[in-house]
């Protein structure tokens, strides 16, 4: 294609973006836009799938029938999110299995939060309340993302995440209002999950290499630090409401800005986990690899059977 044709296409593309017209799979788009979306959506899909693991870890130990059913339903939702996010990736011409192989090789990332272990029942509450709560902050603006299939997937995902967040908060509330032992369980869990939850919004704006371009393309609508602040502002009063203490001595409401000031994130820990050295990185990827490897004979059988059936149909 001629250079001037491309610049014309690029101009038309950016005009659509500027006019809030969604980009659809068959529309022309710059390679970098496509690649950014493939990276982001597949990582989002991987996060949903890997995110099943810390919760699946407690599904057999859920404390009563109702909690067990709700947790199962929630994990099933997460797997479902993974499924249609992989479908959204495929609208960009990527192959689902290839993106999954990238996860297994370590090339593709997923949300670092899932590299932390779920150690007590209270962690099921924290994951819903904080982790899904943070995910909602990130994902609600994605409902207006410039890429149509991703934006539409996010509308449904957000509805379900909002239910997940509430069920998590309900678990935590029940513990916080329970026996001293249960309250202690909730507080201890909050102490472990608070900072990793803040890290879910990614590096601070000054260190974020993708933010500026993603915002120009309207894939992203807010910076990492803006979203993090929104999360803190919403979540701190919730913790106060149920009598739990957010583990940050610098946390203070700032009358002037109308926002909470909060302490510095441990960025060394953040980068360490991103680079693959968190408490559960190895276990999470291994669990996913094992599932795929042990599923090979099943996939092969399904394909062989489908082929046999097609041949029989032809023959008859």
């Amino acid at each position: 294609m001629e250079k001037q044709d491309i610049s014309k296409l690029e101009r038309q593309f950016q005009e659509k973006i500027d006019n809030e017209i969604k980009i659809e799979p068959k529309d022309w788009m710059p390679d970098a836009y496509r690649e950014t979306l493939i990276r982001q959506i597949s990582q989002h899909a991987h996060s949903e799938i890997v995110g099943q693991l810390p919760e699946g870890n407690w599904v057999t130990r859920a404390p009563n029938l109702r909690r067990k059913a709700v947790l199962l339903a929630k994990i099933q939702d997460e797997a479902g999110h993974g499924l249609y996010l992989y479908s959204a990736v495929e609208t960009l011409g990527a192959d689902r299995e290839e993106t999954i192989d990238d996860l297994h090789s370590g090339k593709a990332k997923y949300s670092s939060i899932f590299n932390y272990p779920s150690l007590t029942w209270a962690d099921m509450g924290m994951i819903g309340w904080l982790v899904d709560g943070a995910a909602i902050m990130n994902q609600v603006p994605l409902c207006r993302c410039s890429y149509g299939p991703y934006a539409r997937a996010m509308v449904r995902v957000c509805k379900e995440e909002s239910f997940h967040q509430r069920q998590g908060f309900e678990i935590v509330t029940k513990l916080a209002q329970g026996t001293p032992e249960q309250k202690e369980m909730a507080q201890e869990s909050l102490n472990r999950w608070w900072w990793p939850a803040l890290m879910m919004f990614g590096p601070s704006d000054k260190d974020s290499k993708h933010t500026a371009q993603s915002m120009a393309w309207k894939i992203k609508r807010h910076t990492n630090d803006e979203l993090r602040q929104m999360f803190v502002d919403v979540t701190v009063p919730q913790a106060e409401l149920i009598g739990l203490k957010v583990p940050d001595n610098d946390l203070k409401f700032n009358e002037e800005t109308g926002h909470y000031d909060f302490g510095e994130i441990n960025w060394d820990e953040f980068w360490q986990v991103v680079k693959g050295y968190g408490p559960c990185n190895k276990e999470r990827v291994e669990a996913r690899k094992k599932a795929k490897e042990e599923g090979m004979w099943i996939r092969e059988a399904a394909n062989a059977y489908a082929e046999k059936r097609a041949n029989r149909k032809k023959a008859s």
Binding site: V59, T60, L72, I75, G82, L83, A291, K292, G295, I298
Partner: peptide, 15 residues
């Protein structure tokens, strides 16, 4: 069956 949660051989079957 819930022990399979997150470990299903194919995503569709996990669900």
């Amino acid at each position: 069956l819930s022990e399979w949660c997150g470990h299903g051989p194919i995503l569709e079957e996990d669900i």
